[in-house]
């Protein structure tokens, strides 16, 4: 029930955002509000077993993201360290395109994050930042395999590969 409500609220918010300046009730027209509510309820019914994971721990982690404080933290992360690292990533790729200097390899990381959501955030951050690309994850041991374009150490710590991202992922999702 809780999962159904959460999915419906997210779907309804997306619908409202897409039909923003349309009428007189607040910013929306009555027709849009009714259609949005019906469609959001339908989406929640269909997706109640799909969008949310079955495990209790994972579900709690997902519902925890409704806390607005975590969104603020996420936005700070997105516009602070993440955007900066991404700009550096582009300069790094430019340098390697011009000089052709690469020393690639696939290394193994052991992130100490307890939820799937945190690991997803970390893997996506790794893909978009300097010289690293997540290739595979082990479902049981949660080891993360990362393709590194300039290997300086074959047994690296997570700090060497991706800076402060693990700490940020833990701060946002746990």
């Amino acid at each position: 029930m809780l999962v159904f409500l959460a999915t419906s609220i997210v779907a309804f918010a997306a619908y409202l955002l897409l039909t923003l300046p349309s009428g007189t009730v607040g910013l929306w027209s009555v027709e849009e509000l009714v259609a949005g509510a019906v469609l959001a309820a339908l989406t929640g019914l269909i997706a109640r077993n799909v969008g949310f994971p079955a495990e209790r721990k994972e579900r709690r982690a997902m519902l925890r993201m409704f806390n607005p404080l975590r969104w603020v933290l996420f936005l700070v992360y997105l516009f602070g360290p993440f955007l900066f690292a991404m700009a550096r990533a582009n300069l790094d790729v430019a340098y390697r395109v011009i000089t052709g200097k690469i020393r690639p390899g696939i290394v193994k990381l052991m992130p100490e994050l307890s939820t799937d959501l945190g690991r997803t955030l970390m893997a996506n951050s790794i893909t978009l930042t300097p010289g690293t690309l997540s290739v595979d994850i082990d479902e049981d041991t949660h080891a993360l395999y990362v393709h590194w374009i300039n290997v300086s150490n074959t047994e690296p710590s997570s700090r060497e590969v991706c800076g402060s991202f693990e700490a940020w992922a833990r701060r946002i999702t746990e």
């Binding site: 690639p104 193994k108 690309l133 595979d136 395999y145």
Partner: peptide, 24 residues
Amino acid sequence: SHAIARAAHRSGVKPVGAVVDRLE
């Protein structure tokens, strides 16, 4: 891109000139 990388590795494409390949 994560999905493509994983599929490429499972279908047997090796990284060219790799120093180390822990996944392999």
